[in-house]
Write a protein that binds this DNA or RNA. Structure first.
Lengths: 328, 328
DNA sequence: GAGAATTTTGAAATCGATTGCAATTTTTTC
DNA sequence: GAAAAAATTGCAATCGATTTCAAAATTCTC
């Protein structure tokens, strides 16, 4: 089935070395020879085996991108930017859905190591756990790793992280300054990122001398609507809610409207992440912009430097900002 | 840096063949030898080179997934299901963002061919063009290709397609039966899929003896809001709009509300695709469910059969159905 | 405990490219 | 037109695994 350069060589009456040199545009080939080989290459629809090439060149020209859930808009956007950037440079992206558990995430590190990726990108804070850390130390101690929204202090790991503590605290202060006195927090699944957001809320509440009220919802629209309704039923005095995730805020808003309350008059809402649909919602959602684009851009740049220079290593922090729309 | 099986062999005092047999759980190795080799394998964090392995085994154990835009929720969902399914079977997914132009899509076929993927999946109707077709014939004539939402009559290509003509026509009939007499259609970018939807609309309009009114919006919330407002300004008698894409319908609904019209009293809206956020919108969007899940499931199944049997080839059609919510 | 039968193990070829070095061909130079 | 210099080309080794076939070690049989 697959033609090899030997087949091409025979056809062209030259050696495999010559064919290889033509394919890779190496100098020192007579023009007429080059053209003849190129023609045969074209006519026979030859395509080089990247596996064989990778074996001798000791490189796969692949970037491994690990995402805990690619269906998450937030995550895929990060993967997309990196994919786009490196495809142009001739790299392929091995995008893998690394799953829920810590062990499964760690096993994906092994998979990337087996594929000998030139670099790995971890998208999402959920990778910040000990299994993953150990897997990196064991199987990719010398491969550049870029952590989007998390951090390991290993020599081959760089990172770009959002200061989510600050972001949530700022949202709290804004609500407080606009007169809200019963600001609740709707948390989601327990991830390092959500923990930081919660910390920001708790810290801000303490600083303003206010009691904290934290509810939890799974990461689904239905659960959030239920959790929001339950929160308000139990604490009718609530006049503002900060949500750990935009999606939860949007379906929460719907539940609030259905209860006959007004937004933002009775209750103000602030989501987190400035997701694409946060401005499509009705009313349009105010949100904490965690600067996903900046995070991804920073990752692409670091990745590029890290591939060029294995010693390279950097950690950047971006500061979230508040986007005010119709729910505040 | 990278250890090879020869390093392991030396350490264990055996030959590389033995190490290979242990790694691949081949029979005929003395228990004590196997355990010794396994221990060394573990202690040295050895990881096999898939490139070398692929070279001799003539397989990459990779599935290539081509998506025209991975940020599109609709597409990524399809890629996700396939990724999940095959990862368990030890395949990696090379997910590539194949870009806008026909030529760029075709060139990605070449890339997958170079990587010697075991199969390729094309997600989205945009791959249905001649450049891609020729690229498949030239570079992957024997690799199973599964086309999600499109079709080529090539021996190695299978497909799962939604009958979008029918879906849109059904939506039209529903609106007509509920008394609407000025049903407009908001189209989006010119893709094979959107062309079929438009056909369905035109066909249904003709069948009901009604005049067709087609507007076009680029695939962005802002454009759709503008296009919707313009449509209604030019044709105030409009009492229903079918949208080629849910997203456009959602931002369109916002524009309509902003004009002081009521939904569905003054204008009924139906989107297309039953996207995750269509039921989060306010009011909740009625939509034509193009059965994305079924499409993807069918693709996974066909993919599996095609990998097992290169002769395999099938074409399935799924029928969309109407999901009625608050905008009708 | 010798010889046969069976189980384990290893040497060497292979997969499809790339590349250093030597050999060959072509071009220059006088 | 012969020798030197320069430009082309090919041979053979290499990358890191797998696998066939033969050799070596072990177990069985009488």
């Amino acid at each position: 089935m697959g033609l090899t350069i030997y087949d091409i060589a025979r056809e062209a009456g030259v050696s495999a070395s010559t064919v290889s040199r033509v394919i890779n545009s190496r100098p020192g080939i007579r023009k007429s020879t080059r053209e003849r080989v190129e023609r045969i290459l074209r006519e026979s629809n030859f395509s080089v085996s990247e596996a064989a090439r990778g074996l001798v060149n000791q490189t796969s020209r692949m970037i491994g991108i690990l995402v805990s859930d690619i269906r998450n808009q937030h995550h895929i956007e990060g993967a997309y930017m990196i994919e786009q950037h490196f495809m142009q440079k001739g790299f392929c992206s091995l995008i893998l859905n690394a799953g829920e558990s810590d062990e499964s995430k760690a096993s994906y590190i092994r998979i990337l190591a087996s594929r000998r990726v030139n670099a790995a990108v971890l998208v999402g804070s959920a990778f910040q756990n000990d299994s993953v850390r150990r897997a990196i130390e064991a199987y990719m101690p010398d491969t550049p790793v870029i952590f989007q929204n998390g951090e390991f202090s290993l020599p081959n790991v760089s990172s770009a992280v959002a200061d989510e503590v600050h972001g949530t605290a700022e949202a709290f202060s804004y609500l407080f300054d606009s007169g809200r006195r019963h600001i609740a927090y709707m948390n989601s699944n327990d991830t390092p990122s959500n923990r930081k957001k919660l910390d920001g809320y708790l810290k801000a509440a303490a600083e303003h001398g206010m009691e904290a009220l934290v509810a939890v919802s799974e990461d689904s629209p239905e659960r959030s609507a239920e959790a929001t309704a339950a929160l308000i039923a139990a604490h009718p005095e609530t006049d503002a809610i900060i949500y750990a995730i935009d999606l939860l805020a949007v379906s929460g808003s719907r539940a609030i409207l259905d209860m006959g309350l007004r937004i933002p008059d009775d209750i103000a809402l602030i989501g987190t992440d400035n997701s694409p649909f946060s401005m499509l919602s009705n009313p349009r959602l105010s949100t904490i912009d965690t600067k996903l684009r900046e995070l991804s851009t920073a990752c692409s740049e670091m990745l590029e430097k890290a591939i060029a220079d294995p010693q390279y290593n950097e950690h950047v922090v971006v500061t979230p900002s508040l986007v005010l729309r119709e729910t505040t």
